[in-house]
């Protein structure tokens, strides 16, 4: 995935069955962000892989004051990339479930 300056990782083991999964996100390179960034640390959250859009979660983070509006795309992309990877891994492991 493209280096967005943001890192998104699994915050729990993926059993491949749950639709909602815990993720954690943090800023590795604040210089890549357009908006002013206040060091918040690691943000842990859960996301429904099937029913939720990564972009919506990104917007909620902005609304909560973690990031600036101008980084919405970057944030959404970072989460989406990780979600795609999780889905791809699930598909590889158990194509029937996905």
């Amino acid at each position: 995935a493209e280096d967005t300056g943001l890192r998104v990782e699994l915050a729990e083991e993926d059993d491949g069955k749950k639709s909602s999964i815990a993720l954690r996100l943090w800023v590795e390179d604040p210089k890549k962000l357009k908006g002013k960034y206040k060091d918040n640390g690691v943000i842990e959250f859960s996301l429904d892989l099937i029913n939720e859009n990564p972009e919506d979660v990104a917007q909620e983070m902005i609304d909560s004051g973690f990031f600036h509006e101008s980084d919405a795309k970057l944030l959404g992309k970072s989460i989406r990339d990780r979600v795609s990877l999780i889905k791809w891994k699930r598909e590889k492991q158990c194509p029937v479930l996905v």
């Binding site: 640390g41 909620e60 609304d63 973690f66």
Partner: peptide, 27 residues
């Protein structure tokens, strides 16, 4: 700081904790 903060937004819960040093040094 070492505190963990919980922020609620539109039914979602964000748990915020400090970034461990080791994470920042990861390649």
């Amino acid at each position: 700081g070492t505190t963990t903060q919980v922020v609620h937004s539109a039914g979602r819960r964000f748990i915020v904790s400090p970034v461990p040093e080791a994470r920042l040094k990861e390649p």
